[in-house]
Design a protein around this nucleic acid. Structure first.
Lengths: 129, 129
DNA sequence: GGTTGACTTCCAGTGCGCTCGAACTGGAAG
DNA sequence: CTTCCAGTTCGAGCGCACTGGAAGTCAACC
């Protein structure tokens, strides 16, 4: 190992800015076990590696699809257990994928309803004009 | 008016079952102004007309698309003001429609990510098999 | 060497959308 | 007439996902 390895690493504030979360949330995610304990510098401050950042980014995408924090924690635990949980992780993603598809189908339906309503309003406005 | 008009009307429990909400939620929606005060029978119990029920149903769809209760209340207030708010209501729906479209685009993106991840896991599993 | 500002931990507080317990009332069935 | 059940109001409580205040530490800059 190169003793002068100065691998790019980010402070909590920088990492937060990168992934679009707040520093509060980053620390909270760690506390909740969504993120494995992050490395520290000599002063005890968190240093986020690129790997940490892409993990966090993945979490933001899972969160955005409506995955509960509880499930993200489960996923994080599986990931920490290594290769032998690959199947479980895939199953977790496949189940989630199905939920996302359902959600999208619902939104399609609801969008139709919105369009219909907008049309009704438009006609009614013309009627009154 | 026919004095014997026995228009179909539902109790809070029946209405809740119809629209897929709980009785708690129905009363709360009324209290929050998402629903105009519902008619009562001689004993003071709520009677939901068909109109009330379809309004509630509409609310469930708006809710499902992620519209905050605050905005649903605003919409309900506009609706109570009658025809002269048609334009405002249409604008509200159009703005919401745009948000739903954005949401769907996000989900499309995130779905791609999920598919990619699933594929990665599948390959990794084969690798180890 | 003093000030600044980003960091640390701990724990309490917030906002949203319900959800529920308590105490009561009134109509209907046995 | 009693029992039962579904309803009523009111206010408190909950689950989730953060968010923020307090008090302290430490490196960096003037």
């Amino acid at each position: 190992m190169d003793i002068s390895t100065q691998e790019t690493s980010l402070s909590v504030g920088e990492a937060a800015a990168q992934v679009g979360l707040t520093t509060y949330t980053l620390r909270w995610y760690e506390q909740e076990g969504l993120v494995a304990p992050v490395g520290r510098d000599s002063a005890g401050r968190r240093r986020y590696t690129e790997g940490d950042v892409s993990w966090l980014f993945l979490l933001t995408r899972l969160r955005r699809t409506g995955m509960p924090v509880r499930d993200m924690r489960r996923y994080a635990e599986l990931a920490r257990l290594g290769d032998r949980t690959l199947g479980a992780r895939r199953a977790l993603f496949e189940a989630h994928r199905a939920r996302v598809l359902n959600r999208m189908a619902e939104l399609q339906e609801d969008l139709k309803m919105l369009d219909h309503k907008i049309d009704v309003y438009r006609r009614a406005e013309e009627e009154l004009a």
